[in-house]
Design a protein around this nucleic acid. Structure first.
Length: 578
RNA sequence: GGGCGUGUAGCAUAGCCUGGAUAAUGCACCGGCCUCCUAAGCCGGGGACCGCGGGUUCGAAUCCUGCCGCGCCCGCCA
């Protein structure tokens, strides 16, 4: 209810001044009421007690009394237990609602117009996508949508692992399979098995290991046959990734891919620039930087290794090249990395190094957006190579299949194609919502039942609220009449509650954008859906007369639109039927 | 050992940055509601020393501090 703060403080300021309480920062003393039943805003008066030598109760009472005349048409002031409570009038709420309905983005201002690069998803070539990629992909995609909606120019970057020493063994494995008569497309049909077998040959077979080493050298030097093999690995992996992305419904495309291999050629120049600035020092033959006060286990300064003793490079160098590329080539202002918590210190060091080296200037921001682990039901980390890991593709398929069963159960006569489409929206929505709804820094336990249950605080609950709204509007037969703006009178508690939740939507988007926290939108959409659920049960829409019917239809349309937009910001579909 | 994060009803979480009232939500549990716009829903109920101890404050889940539990990081790996 932030819109109420301004008109209230205009009245509150002079009233407090008259009472002998000048020079208060009104913004900081007015807050939302803890309990909605007390009002929309609250000003605790206990802090004034000492100054005025009066009880908080008396102060709150006096202020409420003095404010009420001037607040007429806006809100009503009351006092309880030393709290000055402000409750918006329905008329004021209705006017704000009209404004919001007319606003092109429902009150969300496009007022942060920076160029933002969001680095997310980042699967590895020739390696299975697993639940860890789910989190980065889903969270990153939502952040892209939110930041874009706020007016930023957002560039998506999928930093895939398509380079480095593992490719020696992967290419050799591909060679071996082909000599056994197995086509590359079949060899890579199950990436989990392919990677595992390559790994085990590498670990157990000395000759294979030697071939892999030579192959890495050939790859680095651009050997034609090797590059062709590499390209096969990359292309076949991408077609697999695309299948996953398509099923997930994320914005990422092939154009967003910029792998390790792209930065590889830029690495020497990174070293050169650091060296020219005199930032490199030699540590046991390696070129290193000391970007901060980090120490290792022995208490010695922790170096950021720029070039290894053998002349090779580490991730840190590649990440620096990446920063240069994004700020200088793409013109990025803000760099966002949606990468697991375990890499926190790595990013801190890289960012610090980039600042020192002048790759990041004053105007740039660089933010690591960490997320917690996905745990198994035993509380242990869910690993991709441990054999029992859940393939992302299987997970998504099962989600859709379960949703499909539920849709058929409810709509036995529905067209199969529509069932399929709705089941996809619901199943994927359920998975995404469960990943987004909590503070992303926390770990969560992967639970099929919870993820796919369609009850409670879930994606389907929000989708259901939206579908009911569309259903009402479709039945009304006069959706066109909704075009004209009208006055909202909000006669019932349920309508006023719904109005309040709708009006608070822009604020939750703003918070989500500034905190890079999609769960703030999840929580708010759930509140809106709850308010709508209550409205739906208590306020008949189509069977009331004239003006009330129009008002309620309009309220439905507004709620539906906001749920749709909100879900879109999370990357979740909003089907019209369920 | 050092650094970072986390701890809130039986379970899963929100709130913590920016301190205010009976700590919010979902699952599970108990009791109501489908001749009426989709019951994937709605209404009501029980259930919490907000990890523990100090401190600051008129007031602490929230800020400071010390412990304890759990996790992650501290590679010439990626």
């Amino acid at each position: 209810m932030r819109d109420l703060i301004k008109p209230v403080s205009e009245v509150l300021g002079p009233v407090l001044a008259k009472m002998g309480l000048a020079d208060f920062d009104l913004e900081s003393i007015i807050g939302p009421a803890t309990d909605r039943s007390h009002g929309d805003l609250a000003i605790p008066c206990h802090q004034f007690s000492r100054i005025l030598k009066k009880s908080p109760v008396a102060i709150a009472e006096e202020a409420a009394e003095k404010m009420n005349d001037q607040l007429k048409g806006i809100a009503k002031a009351t006092s309880v237990a030393g709290f000055l409570n402000i409750t918006a009038e329905s008329r004021w709420l209705g006017d704000r609602l009209s404004e919001l309905a007319e606003h092109p983005t429902y009150g969300v201002e496009k007022n942060t117009t920076r160029t933002v690069v969001v680095d997310y998803s980042s699967p590895n070539i020739a390696k299975e996508m697993h639940v860890g990629h789910l989190r980065s992909t889903v969270i990153g995609d939502s952040l892209v949508r939110i930041l874009e909606f706020k007016g930023n120019t957002v560039i998506r970057e999928n930093h895939v692992g398509d380079w480095g020493t593992p490719f020696g063994m992967l290419i050799e494995r591909l060679e071996d399979l082909e000599s056994e008569g197995i086509q590359p497309s079949d060899a890579l049909s199950d990436l989990g098995i392919f990677y595992r077998d390559a790994r085990s040959s590498f670990d157990s077979d000395e000759k294979f290991r030697e071939r892999a080493r030579k192959r890495v050298v050939a790859l680095q030097s651009g050997d034609e046959a090797t590059m062709a093999r590499w390209k096969q690995l990359v292309d076949l992996s991408f077609s697999y990734f695309d299948e996953v992305y398509d099923m997930l419904g994320v914005l990422l495309t092939k154009d967003d891919v910029r792998g390790e291999s792209y930065y590889d050629s830029l690495l020497p120049s990174v070293v050169e620039r650091l060296d020219d600035s005199g930032l490199l020092s030699n540590n046991l033959g390696a070129e290193v930087m000391y970007p901060g006060d980090w120490v290792n286990r022995e208490g010695n300064p922790l170096p950021l290794i720029i070039r290894k003793g053998d002349g090779g490079y580490n991730y840190a160098t590649s990440d620096l090249a990446c920063i240069i590329d994004r700020t200088e080539r793409l013109g990025a202002d803000d760099l966002i990395y949606v990468v697991g918590t375990e890499q926190k210190q790595h990013f801190q060091m890289v960012f610090a190094a980039a600042r020192i080296a002048g790759f990041l200037h004053e105007k740039h921001t660089s933010t690591h957006v960490p997320f917690g682990l996905v745990l198994g039901s035993d509380g242990g980390k869910l690993k991709s190579r441990s054999g029992g890991a859940v393939r992302l593709l299987d997970l998504l398929k099962e989600a859709i299949q379960r949703a499909s069963a539920a849709v058929i159960n409810r709509n036995p006569d529905m067209d199969p194609l529509e069932i399929q489409s709705i089941a996809k929206s619901i199943g994927i929505g359920a998975v995404k919502y469960s990943d987004l709804k909590a503070d992303r820094t926390k770990d969560y336990i992967f639970d099929w039942e919870k993820m796919l249950s369609f009850e409670g605080e879930t994606g389907p609950y929000l989708q259901y609220a939206h579908a009911r709204i569309r259903s009402i509007l479709a039945r009304s037969g006069d959706e066109a009449s909704l075009e004209k703006p009208l006055n909202y009178t909000l006669p019932s508690n349920e309508e006023a509650r719904l109005a309040r939740e709708i009006l608070a939507f822009p604020e939750s988007v703003d918070i989500a954008a500034s905190e890079l926290a999609p769960h703030r939108i999840c929580k708010h959409l759930h509140r809106i859906s709850q308010a709508f659920g209550s409205f739906y049960e208590h306020c008949p829409v189509l069977m009331v007369d004239d003006s009330l019917r129009i008002e309620r239809m309009s309220l439905c349309a507004l709620t539906g639109d906001i749920l749709q937009i909100g879900l879109e910001l999370l990357g979740i579909d909003a089907p019209s039927r369920m």
